[in-house]
Design a protein around this nucleic acid. Structure first.
Length: 297
DNA sequence: TTCCAGAGCG
DNA sequence: CGCTCGGGAA
């Protein structure tokens, strides 16, 4: 879009480079670094959603195999809605963040019940579903529906920080969002949202492999706590243990087995209070249920 | 050690 | 906002 008054387009900084040049440069970089990933140029919104959920905080290299297995087991939203939770969780094992599997399953349930087995076509509609936040909703809109959207995730963030804030520290998303929006709705980018964001993702991934992670200069950037010995390592272990017992298993047995594993790994024993707290969380979140003293998947 | 196509909760 | 949530590759 041409600038109307010489003050720059709304939401775009008037300083170093104008938006036309930025969009054009990024498209060129993106085409040059294009990665032909299995979930790209796929029209099925459900298949795109599954990829977006799996890719939340999860590296691309890990997702490929899981995405294909998941879609072949649950090819449609209705198929996922008809599936049993333990089967969904079982397929998710090894991918991480098991909550995502539960949320995806609930999304399928809701769409099957209220949406005639179809996903909403707007960001607002998608945002109302469990496990779908601003980034995932925008990803589905851009990649499945081919409509411009504000898709701000770590690779896109890295590109904007690297290109437009090369020296600043602690840049907030509040500053970045209007820029991401202005660029996405720029006519040249908006003409092909898939191409626009595939390019930003690929360029962002390239940057992380070649320069210090630009996203470290995001104000929201935090480092994760260690996984080894953590509560969530125990959560994951317990989830697997219960999944392995289709007929159910007593708490005491799970705790004893868990402590065997902890001992074998040279970690301290898990006390009853911590164990009960983790079980309570997992029950509340719907990983399994408890009936007659048995934990049942 | 670091961080990953984030979301949901208090 | 700050915290939690998996698991592996580099």
């Amino acid at each position: 879009m041409m600038q109307k008054d010489g003050c720059g387009q709304a939401g775009w900084p008037s300083q170093p480079r104008d938006i036309d040049e930025f969009v054009s440069d990024m498209l060129r970089k993106g085409d040059e670094l294009y990665r032909d990933l299995p979930w790209r140029n796929v029209d099925d919104p459900y298949a795109v959603l599954v990829s977006e959920i799996m890719l939340q905080q999860t590296q691309v290299s890990r997702v490929g195999r899981f995405w294909e297995r998941f879609l072949s087991a649950f090819p449609t939203l209705d198929a996922l809605a008809a599936a049993a939770v333990p089967d969904v969780l079982e397929l998710w094992q090894g991918l991480g963040y098991n909550r995502r599997a539960l949320a995806l399953k609930r999304t399928a349930d809701q769409c099957a019940a209220e949406g005639e087995g179809r996903l909403p076509e707007t960001c607002e509609g998608l945002l109302a579903l469990p496990g779908i936040g601003p980034a995932t909703a925008a990803g589905v809109v851009a990649f499945a529906y081919q409509r411009p959207a504000v898709y701000l995730e770590t690779n896109v963030r890295s590109v904007f920080l690297h290109e437009l804030f090369p020296a600043e520290e602690a840049v907030s998303d509040k500053v970045l969002l209007p820029l991401v929006e202005a660029a996405a709705f720029h006519p040249v980018a908006a003409a092909d949202p898939r191409r626009w964001y595939y390019g930003l993702l690929d360029y962002g991934a390239y940057l992380k492999a070649t320069v210090p992670n630009p996203s470290r200069r995001s104000s929201g950037h935090t480092r994760q706590s260690a996984f080894e010995g953590s509560r969530r390592q125990k959560r994951a272990w317990i989830t697997r243990r219960v999944l392995a017992a289709p007929e159910g298993v007593r708490r005491a047995v799970v705790l004893a087995d868990l402590n065997k594993a902890e001992l074998a790994a040279a970690r301290p024993e898990v006390d009853a209070e911590l164990f009960a707290s983790i079980i309570a969380d997992l029950l509340t979140e719907g990983f399994f249920r408890e009936e007659a003293g048995l934990l049942i998947p």
